[in-house]
Amino acid sequence: MNIIKRQNETRDILLELVAVAFLATGGIFVKFSALSPINTGFYRVLFSFPFLFLLAYKHLKQLTKKDVLILLIAGVFLAGDVALWNLSFSYTSVANANLLTNLTPFTVIPVSYFLFKEKIPKFFLVGAAITLFGVFVLISGKANPSTSNYFGDFLAFCASFFYASFLLIAYRLRDRLESSVIMFVSSFGSVTALFIFSLFVEGVQVPHGVEQLWPLLALTFCLQIVGHNLLAHCQGKINVNLSSILCLAQPAIASLYSFVIFSERLSIKEIIGIIIVIAGVYLVKAQYDEKEYNYKASIKNEDQIDEVSERTL
């Protein structure tokens, strides 16, 4: 198997931030949905099948039976993330739910180091620590904390482990498979698991009319088709550790969305937390820029040495 060398180029990082911005809209449409949280997640995935098939069908021949099985398992992990994340919006703010679900570096970084042998730049952990510090400043800045807030925070935090598992599987499969294939096949696992969850927790619900359908279609487009699909694409271009840190920009974006749309108050402490998160993400990105620059410089020097040696001979 050919392993892709992730270049961590600026354009791909910007593309992932676009994906993150789309993913950050999830809380908005979940709050607008008339259906229960898990049913909302179920229809979000179900409605994506025709669109993802159009993107993936030319590449489905790449799949092996093992790939299909792994992707179905990945889909179940994504379903766990979707179910817990959607439920968390009933108890906590859009900003906090997005924030805690994206604490994937706690899982991704150690697993990728031991399992995938991903090297970590010298000051990577410093940037990651600053980012995570900003995250905790943001969550501690609640204007009106309550028991239900913290229960919602707990649900979102649990969702982060399911999300991290999905990201790690998608990251490794991106060495061989297109992002659309990953999203299309894994959706079968997601929709099955979400249907079972909704059956036992909420009962099956059927949307009626434009008023109930539009939030579901918006979720399908913004998250399933654009957000996760684009994020999976970027995982073939960006190191998994950097990618997981970039996802921490989502809470900051979600905070701005919730402030504008739902008038969710942002305290001074929360604003400071957002600024710290952005600073940490920038520092982490700078570490990979320096690493890539040093790598290219070493290659250039080796080429120059080879050229001098050839002339000498």
Rank of each mutant, 00 (worst) to 15 (best):
D12E: 09
D12F: 03
I13T: 13
V18R: 00
V20F: 05
A24D: 03
G26W: 01
G27E: 02
V30S: 03
F42P: 03
V45N: 05
F47R: 02
L54I: 07
L55N: 06
Y57A: 00
L60W: 00
I70V: 14
I73R: 08
A79T: 06
D81N: 15
A83L: 04
A83P: 05
N86S: 11
F89N: 00
T92E: 04
N98H: 14
N102G: 11
P105S: 14
F106P: 00
T107D: 05
Y113K: 11
F114S: 06
F116T: 12
K119G: 09
L125V: 08
L125P: 06
V126N: 05
K142Q: 15
N144Y: 10
N149Q: 10
A156E: 05
F162R: 00
F166D: 03
I169G: 01
L173D: 10
S187F: 02
L199F: 14
F200P: 03
V204R: 10
H208F: 13
G209E: 11
L216V: 08
L219M: 12
L223H: 04
V226G: 00
I238T: 04
V240Y: 06
A249V: 04
P251K: 02
A252T: 10
Y257F: 13
S258R: 09
F259V: 03
F262M: 10
I268A: 12
E270L: 11
G273S: 08
A279P: 05
E290S: 15
Y295A: 09
A297W: 12
D303H: 13
